Simulated assay, not measured.
Amino acid sequence: MDYLMCHIEKEFFGTTFEGIPIYQYTLVNKNGAMVKIITYGAIVRELWVPGRSGTLFDVVLGFDSLQEYEEKNASYFFGAIVGRYANRIAGGSFKIDGVTYQLALNDGDRPNALHGGVKGFYTRVFKAIPMKTPKGPSLVLKYLSHDGEEGYPGNLDVTVIYTLTNENELKIEYRATTDKPTVVNLTHHSYFNLSGDGTILDHEIMINADHYTPVDENLIPTGEISSVEGTPYDLRSFKRLEDAIEPLKDTPTRGFDINYVLNGKDGELKLAAVLKSKKTSVRMEVYTTEPGLQFYTGNFLDVKGKGGKYYSPYSGLCLEAQHFPDSPNHSNFPSTILRPGEEYRQITVYKFSMEG
Protein backbone atom coordinates (compact mmCIF):
# COMPACT_ATOMS: atom_id res chain seq x y z
CA MET A 1 0.00 0.00 0.00
CA ASP A 2 1.33 3.42 -1.00
CA TYR A 3 0.43 5.02 2.31
CA LEU A 4 2.70 2.56 4.12
CA MET A 5 5.64 3.87 2.06
CA CYS A 6 5.20 7.49 3.18
CA HIS A 7 6.91 8.88 6.26
CA ILE A 8 6.01 11.45 8.95
CA GLU A 9 8.41 12.69 11.61
CA LYS A 10 7.82 15.11 14.50
CA GLU A 11 10.54 17.16 16.20
CA PHE A 12 10.78 20.07 18.61
CA PHE A 13 11.47 23.31 16.72
CA GLY A 14 11.61 25.92 19.48
CA THR A 15 9.67 27.89 22.06
CA THR A 16 7.86 31.13 21.27
CA PHE A 17 8.55 34.36 23.15
CA GLU A 18 5.35 33.56 25.08
CA GLY A 19 6.70 30.14 26.10
CA ILE A 20 4.65 27.95 23.74
CA PRO A 21 6.47 24.92 22.31
CA ILE A 22 6.53 24.69 18.50
CA TYR A 23 6.97 21.45 16.57
CA GLN A 24 8.10 20.70 13.05
CA TYR A 25 6.54 17.88 11.05
CA THR A 26 8.40 16.35 8.12
CA LEU A 27 6.23 14.63 5.51
CA VAL A 28 7.89 12.40 2.90
CA ASN A 29 5.94 10.79 0.05
CA LYS A 30 6.76 7.52 -1.72
CA ASN A 31 8.89 9.39 -4.31
CA GLY A 32 11.11 11.03 -1.69
CA ALA A 33 9.59 14.50 -2.08
CA MET A 34 9.51 16.21 1.32
CA VAL A 35 7.81 19.11 3.09
CA LYS A 36 8.60 20.53 6.54
CA ILE A 37 5.77 22.34 8.33
CA ILE A 38 5.84 24.05 11.73
CA THR A 39 2.88 24.58 14.05
CA TYR A 40 3.70 28.30 14.28
CA GLY A 41 1.65 29.98 11.55
CA ALA A 42 1.11 26.58 9.87
CA ILE A 43 4.27 27.56 7.99
CA VAL A 44 5.82 25.51 5.19
CA ARG A 45 9.54 25.91 5.93
CA GLU A 46 10.97 23.60 3.28
CA LEU A 47 9.56 21.91 0.20
CA TRP A 48 11.91 19.50 -1.59
CA VAL A 49 10.82 18.35 -5.05
CA PRO A 50 12.65 16.41 -7.80
CA GLY A 51 14.21 18.25 -10.72
CA ARG A 52 16.82 17.45 -13.33
CA SER A 53 18.48 14.03 -12.89
CA GLY A 54 16.19 13.34 -9.92
CA THR A 55 18.02 15.84 -7.71
CA LEU A 56 15.81 17.31 -4.97
CA PHE A 57 15.50 21.09 -4.72
CA ASP A 58 14.06 23.14 -1.85
CA VAL A 59 11.74 25.50 -3.74
CA VAL A 60 10.45 27.80 -0.96
CA LEU A 61 12.02 30.66 0.99
CA GLY A 62 12.09 30.75 4.77
CA PHE A 63 14.09 31.10 7.96
CA ASP A 64 16.22 28.68 9.99
CA SER A 65 14.86 29.49 13.45
CA LEU A 66 11.58 30.19 15.22
CA GLN A 67 13.04 33.43 16.57
CA GLU A 68 13.57 34.69 13.01
CA TYR A 69 9.96 33.87 12.10
CA GLU A 70 8.73 35.73 15.18
CA GLU A 71 10.97 38.76 14.62
CA LYS A 72 10.93 39.11 10.83
CA ASN A 73 7.98 37.35 9.24
CA ALA A 74 5.51 40.20 9.75
CA SER A 75 7.24 41.80 6.75
CA TYR A 76 7.26 38.70 4.52
CA PHE A 77 4.75 36.00 5.67
CA PHE A 78 7.13 33.27 4.41
CA GLY A 79 5.25 29.98 3.98
CA ALA A 80 2.39 30.94 6.29
CA ILE A 81 -1.34 30.41 6.27
CA VAL A 82 -2.73 33.93 6.10
CA GLY A 83 -6.03 34.96 7.68
CA ARG A 84 -8.60 35.86 8.77
CA TYR A 85 -8.46 38.02 5.71
CA ALA A 86 -5.62 37.60 3.23
CA ASN A 87 -4.61 40.67 1.24
CA ARG A 88 -5.84 44.21 1.89
CA ILE A 89 -8.95 45.85 3.31
CA ALA A 90 -9.22 49.60 2.66
CA GLY A 91 -9.10 51.70 5.79
CA GLY A 92 -9.18 48.45 7.75
CA SER A 93 -12.95 48.85 7.83
CA PHE A 94 -15.94 46.82 6.63
CA LYS A 95 -19.63 46.41 7.39
CA ILE A 96 -21.73 43.31 7.94
CA ASP A 97 -25.49 43.71 8.38
CA GLY A 98 -25.06 47.42 9.07
CA VAL A 99 -22.42 46.94 11.79
CA THR A 100 -18.99 48.52 11.14
CA TYR A 101 -15.85 46.68 12.20
CA GLN A 102 -12.46 48.39 12.47
CA LEU A 103 -9.17 46.52 12.07
CA ALA A 104 -5.58 47.56 12.71
CA LEU A 105 -3.82 49.42 9.88
CA ASN A 106 -0.64 47.40 9.36
CA ASP A 107 0.27 47.93 5.69
CA GLY A 108 3.24 50.26 6.17
CA ASP A 109 2.47 53.76 4.91
CA ARG A 110 -0.79 52.64 3.29
CA PRO A 111 -4.04 53.02 5.30
CA ASN A 112 -5.00 49.33 4.96
CA ALA A 113 -5.43 46.22 7.03
CA LEU A 114 -3.10 43.57 5.60
CA HIS A 115 -3.05 39.77 5.86
CA GLY A 116 -5.15 39.42 8.99
CA GLY A 117 -3.57 42.09 11.16
CA VAL A 118 -0.68 42.62 13.55
CA LYS A 119 -1.10 39.11 14.96
CA GLY A 120 -2.73 37.35 12.04
CA PHE A 121 -2.79 33.61 11.56
CA TYR A 122 0.87 33.70 10.50
CA THR A 123 1.72 34.27 14.21
CA ARG A 124 -0.74 31.81 15.75
CA VAL A 125 0.01 28.33 17.07
CA PHE A 126 -1.95 25.52 15.42
CA LYS A 127 -2.74 22.10 16.87
CA ALA A 128 -1.38 19.37 14.60
CA ILE A 129 -2.61 15.86 13.81
CA PRO A 130 -0.39 13.82 11.46
CA MET A 131 -2.08 11.24 9.23
CA LYS A 132 -0.96 8.67 6.67
CA THR A 133 -3.44 8.43 3.81
CA PRO A 134 -3.56 6.41 0.58
CA LYS A 135 -2.78 9.63 -1.33
CA GLY A 136 0.25 10.50 0.79
CA PRO A 137 1.20 11.88 4.22
CA SER A 138 -1.07 14.63 5.64
CA LEU A 139 -0.91 17.12 8.47
CA VAL A 140 -4.20 18.43 9.86
CA LEU A 141 -3.75 21.83 11.54
CA LYS A 142 -6.46 23.42 13.70
CA TYR A 143 -6.88 26.86 15.20
CA LEU A 144 -9.75 28.61 16.99
CA SER A 145 -9.73 32.35 16.31
CA HIS A 146 -11.71 33.97 19.11
CA ASP A 147 -14.46 36.55 18.69
CA GLY A 148 -12.84 40.00 18.48
CA GLU A 149 -9.36 38.72 17.62
CA GLU A 150 -7.68 41.44 15.53
CA GLY A 151 -11.09 43.14 15.37
CA TYR A 152 -12.91 40.36 13.48
CA PRO A 153 -16.33 39.20 14.74
CA GLY A 154 -17.20 35.62 15.66
CA ASN A 155 -15.38 32.57 16.94
CA LEU A 156 -13.86 31.11 13.79
CA ASP A 157 -12.94 27.42 13.88
CA VAL A 158 -10.26 26.84 11.22
CA THR A 159 -8.86 23.60 9.80
CA VAL A 160 -6.03 23.44 7.26
CA ILE A 161 -4.95 20.10 5.80
CA TYR A 162 -1.62 19.79 4.02
CA THR A 163 -1.14 16.61 1.97
CA LEU A 164 2.07 15.78 0.14
CA THR A 165 0.56 13.45 -2.42
CA ASN A 166 2.33 10.62 -4.20
CA GLU A 167 1.75 12.64 -7.39
CA ASN A 168 4.22 15.23 -5.99
CA GLU A 169 1.48 17.73 -5.17
CA LEU A 170 1.27 19.93 -2.11
CA LYS A 171 -2.48 19.93 -1.63
CA ILE A 172 -3.99 22.43 0.82
CA GLU A 173 -7.59 22.06 2.00
CA TYR A 174 -9.19 24.81 4.08
CA ARG A 175 -12.34 24.68 6.19
CA ALA A 176 -13.85 27.17 8.62
CA THR A 177 -17.08 27.73 10.56
CA THR A 178 -18.26 30.68 12.64
CA ASP A 179 -20.83 31.50 15.32
CA LYS A 180 -21.36 35.10 14.10
CA PRO A 181 -21.36 36.64 10.62
CA THR A 182 -17.74 37.42 9.71
CA VAL A 183 -15.41 37.75 6.73
CA VAL A 184 -12.99 34.98 5.77
CA ASN A 185 -10.31 34.89 3.09
CA LEU A 186 -7.51 32.38 3.67
CA THR A 187 -4.45 31.73 1.55
CA HIS A 188 -1.00 30.16 1.54
CA HIS A 189 1.95 32.54 1.31
CA SER A 190 5.00 30.57 0.19
CA TYR A 191 7.59 32.35 -1.91
CA PHE A 192 8.61 29.93 -4.64
CA ASN A 193 11.94 29.72 -6.41
CA LEU A 194 12.06 26.60 -8.58
CA SER A 195 15.81 26.96 -9.11
CA GLY A 196 16.48 26.61 -5.39
CA ASP A 197 18.60 29.78 -5.26
CA GLY A 198 19.31 33.01 -7.15
CA THR A 199 16.32 34.93 -8.49
CA ILE A 200 13.13 34.01 -10.31
CA LEU A 201 13.86 36.40 -13.20
CA ASP A 202 14.80 33.51 -15.50
CA HIS A 203 11.61 31.57 -14.68
CA GLU A 204 8.75 31.44 -17.15
CA ILE A 205 5.15 31.96 -16.05
CA MET A 206 1.63 31.65 -17.39
CA ILE A 207 -1.49 32.79 -15.52
CA ASN A 208 -4.87 31.53 -16.71
CA ALA A 209 -6.78 34.80 -16.41
CA ASP A 210 -8.37 37.11 -18.98
CA HIS A 211 -9.11 39.77 -16.36
CA TYR A 212 -7.60 41.44 -13.30
CA THR A 213 -8.65 43.96 -10.66
CA PRO A 214 -6.89 47.35 -11.17
CA VAL A 215 -5.81 49.12 -7.99
CA ASP A 216 -5.37 52.70 -6.74
CA GLU A 217 -2.26 54.25 -5.20
CA ASN A 218 -2.88 52.30 -1.97
CA LEU A 219 -3.11 48.98 -3.86
CA ILE A 220 -6.85 48.79 -3.18
CA PRO A 221 -9.05 47.61 -6.08
CA THR A 222 -10.99 50.36 -7.80
CA GLY A 223 -13.92 47.96 -8.19
CA GLU A 224 -13.36 47.48 -11.92
CA ILE A 225 -12.74 44.08 -13.47
CA SER A 226 -10.57 44.85 -16.50
CA SER A 227 -9.17 42.88 -19.40
CA VAL A 228 -5.46 42.04 -19.29
CA GLU A 229 -5.35 42.60 -23.07
CA GLY A 230 -2.74 45.21 -23.96
CA THR A 231 -1.47 45.58 -20.37
CA PRO A 232 1.73 44.38 -18.64
CA TYR A 233 -0.53 41.99 -16.70
CA ASP A 234 -1.27 39.79 -19.73
CA LEU A 235 0.39 36.49 -18.84
CA ARG A 236 -1.97 34.19 -20.75
CA SER A 237 1.01 32.79 -22.66
CA PHE A 238 4.40 31.98 -21.14
CA LYS A 239 6.66 34.95 -20.45
CA ARG A 240 10.13 35.15 -19.00
CA LEU A 241 9.76 36.97 -15.70
CA GLU A 242 12.58 39.40 -16.31
CA ASP A 243 10.77 40.56 -19.46
CA ALA A 244 7.36 40.60 -17.76
CA ILE A 245 8.61 42.70 -14.81
CA GLU A 246 10.53 45.24 -16.91
CA PRO A 247 7.50 47.51 -17.72
CA LEU A 248 6.62 47.60 -14.00
CA LYS A 249 10.06 48.35 -12.55
CA ASP A 250 9.47 52.11 -12.43
CA THR A 251 6.03 51.80 -10.83
CA PRO A 252 5.54 52.02 -7.03
CA THR A 253 5.25 48.22 -6.79
CA ARG A 254 8.47 47.60 -8.82
CA GLY A 255 6.96 44.40 -10.17
CA PHE A 256 3.80 42.35 -9.90
CA ASP A 257 1.50 42.75 -6.89
CA ILE A 258 -1.90 42.27 -8.47
CA ASN A 259 -5.02 40.11 -8.23
CA TYR A 260 -6.03 38.05 -11.25
CA VAL A 261 -9.64 37.04 -11.91
CA LEU A 262 -9.16 33.41 -12.84
CA ASN A 263 -10.82 31.80 -15.83
CA GLY A 264 -13.19 29.01 -14.89
CA LYS A 265 -15.94 28.60 -12.34
CA ASP A 266 -15.62 29.74 -8.74
CA GLY A 267 -15.72 26.68 -6.47
CA GLU A 268 -14.44 24.24 -9.07
CA LEU A 269 -10.81 23.11 -9.17
CA LYS A 270 -9.17 24.77 -12.19
CA LEU A 271 -5.73 25.59 -13.54
CA ALA A 272 -4.63 28.98 -12.23
CA ALA A 273 -0.96 29.25 -13.21
CA VAL A 274 2.13 27.42 -14.43
CA LEU A 275 5.68 28.30 -13.39
CA LYS A 276 8.85 26.66 -14.70
CA SER A 277 12.60 26.85 -14.27
CA LYS A 278 14.92 25.89 -17.13
CA LYS A 279 17.82 25.65 -14.68
CA THR A 280 16.35 22.73 -12.71
CA SER A 281 13.61 21.57 -15.12
CA VAL A 282 11.11 21.89 -12.24
CA ARG A 283 7.57 22.77 -13.33
CA MET A 284 4.82 23.88 -10.91
CA GLU A 285 1.14 23.97 -11.81
CA VAL A 286 -1.29 25.76 -9.48
CA TYR A 287 -4.90 24.60 -9.27
CA THR A 288 -7.55 26.18 -7.06
CA THR A 289 -11.27 26.45 -6.33
CA GLU A 290 -10.79 30.15 -5.52
CA PRO A 291 -11.86 32.98 -7.88
CA GLY A 292 -8.62 34.98 -7.59
CA LEU A 293 -4.85 34.65 -7.61
CA GLN A 294 -2.62 37.33 -6.12
CA PHE A 295 0.69 37.35 -7.98
CA TYR A 296 3.59 38.97 -6.12
CA THR A 297 7.16 38.90 -7.39
CA GLY A 298 8.99 39.57 -4.11
CA ASN A 299 9.73 43.14 -5.18
CA PHE A 300 10.98 44.30 -1.77
CA LEU A 301 12.69 41.21 -0.37
CA ASP A 302 15.68 42.23 1.76
CA VAL A 303 16.54 39.70 4.46
CA LYS A 304 18.86 36.84 5.36
CA GLY A 305 17.04 33.53 5.05
CA LYS A 306 17.70 29.80 5.33
CA GLY A 307 21.30 28.66 5.34
CA GLY A 308 22.53 32.24 5.46
CA LYS A 309 21.23 32.97 1.96
CA TYR A 310 20.44 36.62 1.31
CA TYR A 311 17.01 37.13 -0.22
CA SER A 312 17.12 40.20 -2.47
CA PRO A 313 14.24 41.51 -4.62
CA TYR A 314 12.86 38.82 -6.95
CA SER A 315 14.43 35.94 -4.98
CA GLY A 316 11.00 34.30 -4.85
CA LEU A 317 7.41 34.82 -5.94
CA CYS A 318 3.99 34.22 -4.43
CA LEU A 319 0.96 32.70 -6.16
CA GLU A 320 -1.73 33.22 -3.53
CA ALA A 321 -5.07 31.62 -4.39
CA GLN A 322 -7.80 33.62 -2.64
CA HIS A 323 -10.82 35.88 -2.94
CA PHE A 324 -10.24 39.41 -4.18
CA PRO A 325 -8.64 42.17 -2.07
CA ASP A 326 -11.10 44.44 -0.23
CA SER A 327 -14.07 42.25 -1.23
CA PRO A 328 -16.15 43.27 1.83
CA ASN A 329 -16.26 46.80 0.38
CA HIS A 330 -17.14 45.81 -3.21
CA SER A 331 -20.58 44.33 -3.73
CA ASN A 332 -19.69 43.26 -7.29
CA PHE A 333 -16.85 41.00 -6.05
CA PRO A 334 -17.47 37.39 -4.92
CA SER A 335 -18.60 37.55 -1.29
CA THR A 336 -16.24 36.72 1.58
CA ILE A 337 -18.96 36.77 4.25
CA LEU A 338 -19.36 33.57 6.26
CA ARG A 339 -22.46 33.08 8.41
CA PRO A 340 -23.34 30.61 11.16
CA GLY A 341 -24.46 27.30 9.69
CA GLU A 342 -22.26 27.75 6.59
CA GLU A 343 -18.82 26.24 5.98
CA TYR A 344 -15.93 27.99 4.28
CA ARG A 345 -14.13 25.52 2.01
CA GLN A 346 -11.42 25.83 -0.56
CA ILE A 347 -8.71 23.68 -2.13
CA THR A 348 -5.42 24.81 -3.64
CA VAL A 349 -2.89 22.44 -5.19
CA TYR A 350 0.74 23.07 -6.12
CA LYS A 351 1.70 20.23 -8.47
CA PHE A 352 5.36 19.59 -9.28
CA SER A 353 6.82 17.72 -12.24
CA MET A 354 9.86 17.81 -14.52
CA GLU A 355 9.94 19.57 -17.87
CA GLY A 356 11.01 17.45 -20.83
Rank of each mutant, 00 (worst) to 15 (best):
D2S: 11
D2M: 08
M5A: 14
F13W: 15
G14F: 09
T16V: 04
I20Y: 03
P21R: 01
Y23F: 14
Q24S: 07
F63W: 05
D64M: 05
S65D: 15
N73V: 02
I81G: 12
I81K: 00
R84M: 13
R88L: 03
F94W: 05
K95H: 13
G98N: 11
L103W: 04
L105C: 01
D107F: 04
G120Q: 07
Y122M: 03
Y122V: 08
T123K: 00
T133R: 02
P134A: 06
P137T: 04
L139C: 12
K142F: 05
Y143A: 02
H146D: 15
E149A: 01
E150T: 00
G151I: 11
V158C: 02
T159F: 08
T159E: 15
T163Y: 04
L164H: 07
T165H: 11
N168K: 11
L170I: 08
I172H: 01
R175L: 11
V184H: 07
L186T: 04
Y191P: 06
G196M: 08
G198Y: 11
D202H: 14
D210C: 13
V215D: 01
D216I: 12
N218R: 02
G223Q: 04
F238C: 06
R240M: 12
E246M: 15
T251A: 15
R254V: 10
D257G: 13
I258Y: 03
I258C: 03
G267F: 02
E268M: 08
A272E: 06
T280V: 03
S281M: 15
R283T: 13
Y287A: 00
P291N: 01
G292A: 15
G292F: 10
G305W: 05
G316K: 02
C318M: 10
H323A: 03
F324A: 00
S335D: 12
P340S: 05
R345L: 12
Q346I: 08
S353E: 13
M354L: 14
E355G: 07
